[in-house]
Amino acid sequence: MRAYTTARWIVLAVIGIMVTLLPELSPTYVSSSIALPTLTTGLCAISLTFLSTYGGLVSLAQTGLFGVAGLLAASLAVESHVDPALAGLIGIAAAATAGLLFGALASSSTGTYFLMITLALGEISYYLFSAVPAFGLHEGINAVFPPSWLGDPVRHPTAIYYFILLVAVGFHLLLRYLVRTPFGMALQGVRDDPERMTALGYNVRVHRTLAFALAAAIAGTAGVLAAWTNTRISADSISLGVTIGVLEAAVIGGMYSLEGAWIGAFTLTVLSIYGPAFTDRYATVLGILFLAIVLVSPGGLTGVLTSIDRRVRHALSNQQLPALADRGASEQPRG
C-alpha cells in the first residue's frame, strides 16, 4: 500500500518535472506544436469545466469569447499598432464585458436551455466576426506577434511556454481558491438548488453572471495567447467545429474536476496531430470516443483514472470499498 502511494507520488512528480522542464527535455517541435496548443485549449476548456462543475452551466459560448479577445487583440496590435501586451489586456477586458452581457442574458436558465442560448450567442459572435472586414473575414489576421520579451513563439518557444504555463497554473489555482470562498460556495449552492438559494436571499442570476464573466475572462486570455502562439487568428478559429472541439476536450478529460480540462486538452491535441496519419476519418473516431465517454464514463478520463486508483488502493489495502465517491457513476450531469 505504501509502495503504491509512493509510486503514485513518483508518477505525479515525474509529470510535474516533465511539464516544468519540457523546453529543455524535448525538441522545439514538441513545445510549439503540442505543449502550447494543449495549454491554450486547456485554458479555454477549464473555463467551461469550471462553469459546468461549480455552476452547473454548460456553455458553448466559450470559443466565441475566446474569439472576442483574440481577434480584438490581434486587430489592435496588427492594424492599429497598439503594444501587443496592452492589446491583449484590452481584448481580455472586452471578453469579460461580453461575458457579463452574455451571462446576464443567459443567467435565468440552466441545463440544455443555457446550452442553447450560449450556443446562439457564441455563433452570432462567429458570424459577426466572419462578416466584418476589420477582423480579416475568413483569411483572418496574420503576423500577430506576442510582446517582444516573449520571443519568437515558433522557433524559440521556451519563454512563451513558461509564460503560458505560469498563466495556466495561476488560473487553475485561482479557480481552486475561488470555489472555497463564500462566493464559490454560494455558486455551488446555486448549482444544486437555485430555489432554496433564492429563498436564503442569494441572487441566483448575479452569481451565475459573475461566474460566467470570470470564465469569459479566462477564455479570452486563452484567445489572446492562442493568437500569439499561432501568430494568426481568424473567424474560423471560433467556428462551431472548434466550439465542439473544446467541449470534446472538456468531456473527454472529465467535467467533474478542473484537472480534466488539461488532460482532455492534451489528449485532443495529441490525437489531432497523430490521428490523421492513421485514418482519414479522424473526426469520426473522435466523435465515437466522445460518444463512448458520454455514454459509459461521464467522469471522462479523470473519472477512469480516479476509479482505477480507488480500485488499486482497495485491492492493496484489502479493506471494504468505501461508499462510491465517484460522482460520475451515481450522478448525471445536472440538467
Binding site: 454548460v58 441545463g111 440544455t112 446550452l115 465542439i244 467541449l247 470534446e248 468531456v251 482519414d280 476519418r281 479522424y282 473526426a283 469520426t284 473522435l286 466523435g287 465515437i288 466522445f290 460518444l291 458520454v294 455514454l295 461521464p298 448525471q332 450531469p333 445536472r334 440538467g335
Partner: peptide
C-alpha cells in the same frame, strides 16, 4: 439506440446528440 435509455438526463442527451452530429458530419463529408 442512444436517447431512450437516458430519458430525463437532458444534458447528457444533448452531449450524445452533439457527438452523433460530429460523426454524421464527417461521414457525410466522406
Amino acid at each position: 439506440l442512444f436517447l431512450r435509455w437516458n430519458l430525463g438526463q437532458d444534458l447528457r442527451q444533448a452531449l450524445i446528440t452533439i457527438a452523433l452530429s460530429v460523426i454524421l458530419a464527417d461521414q457525410m463529408l466522406n
